[in-house]
């Protein structure tokens, strides 16, 4: 462990924010969609900021189902990558500078995504949270919910399966 890293409340916050920003800022598509993340500990809430380019049907107007699907897929991938990254930075107590120099993590790859459209996405910000239902070595299953005005009235939900990156096992070999 690195001796010069300290662990004040401020250090912890900086480390976590640096890691999250590193992940999110590197993916061009998240900024194309206008997606940003709020963090409380390891819990993420995503916002897809409203913009006219998200509209599918201009007469309603309603957010394009494809944009909604893309939002949920993004949130699922970030969630999976973030949970892995979070464990790593916390275990190694990395500093913001060290995080900036880390190799960019290999992202999970989407296998399938099933989207249910539950109500019309109106012309305003959309929020999402992901829940990892299964996180195996090779496969993960993630559920995402999106809402706008009321947390309990979902705009859409999705379940996706993801292929996890091969882990380079750095832990000492177990006996046997």
């Amino acid at each position: 462990m690195n001796a010069r890293t300290s662990n004040t409340a401020q250090d912890i916050k900086e480390r976590r924010d640096a890691a999250l920003n590193r992940l999110v800022d590197a993916i061009p598509y998240t900024s194309f969609l206008g997606v940003s993340f709020d963090r409380r500990g390891d819990e993420l809430t995503a916002t897809m900021a409203y913009s006219d380019q998200l509209i599918g049907n201009p007469t309603v107007p309603a957010i394009h189902g494809g944009a909604m699907a893309a939002f949920m897929e993004t949130v699922a991938i970030i969630e999976l990558a973030w949970i892995d990254l979070f464990k790593q930075i916390e275990a190694d107590k990395l500093s913001g500078d060290e995080i900036a120099q880390m190799p960019f993590p290999t992202l999970p790859k989407v296998i399938d995504l099933t989207v249910d459209y539950l109500s019309v996405g109106r012309s305003r910000d959309t929020y999402a949270r992901a829940r990892i239902n299964r996180a195996g070595r090779r496969y993960a299953s993630v559920h995402v919910e999106t809402w706008q005005d009321n947390r309990s009235k979902l705009v859409a939900q999705a379940t996706g399966h993801f292929l996890m990156p091969e882990k380079t096992d750095t832990s000492p070999p177990k006996g046997g």
Binding site: I27, G66, A70, F71, T74, L107
Partner: peptide, 18 residues
């Protein structure tokens, strides 16, 4: 601007969904 994986330059699945 549609890249989903900066390591490979592959377009995000979301754009294909759309």
């Amino acid at each position: 601007k549609l890249i989903g994986d900066p390591a490979t330059g592959v377009i995000h699945g979301g754009a294909i969904s759309a």
